[in-house]
Amino acid sequence: MSESNHPVDLKSSIRTCIMVFAVVFIATASMIAVSFSHVGGWPLKVALILAIAVVNAFFVAGYLMHLLSEKKLVYTVLAFTVFFFIGLMGLTVWATNDFPTGTLNH
């Protein structure tokens, strides 16, 4: 869904959609397989599942939202968002072992 100057064609769009759906299907099946497998510990499983989800999201955002060929302003907005999003998650992870003294845990 970009403002690119490339002509839009229904047939090639359908081909792209089939490819994206195949990726989503395979990614979903892989996540389920990893989740139910007995290989590795729980942290490794979570990391693998989230890595597959990121790949899945890349295809949806890249091809269906046409983020692979967007204008500079959109990338700028997203860069700021990603920066603050990473900050939010980073602070959360950083705070996970930061229990106030005198609480039930410490």
Binding site: E3, K71, K72, L73, V74, V77, L78, F80, T81, F84, F85, L88, M89, L91, T92, V93, A95, T96
Partner: peptide, 30 residues
Amino acid sequence: TGLYNAKVGIWLFLASEMMLFGGLFSAYIL
């Protein structure tokens, strides 16, 4: 901007949405 205005608007809105869900995901982690 190289874009029509509604498109700039929706991307700004989606950016705020990402932070909204981000806050809830961080709550989940905690």
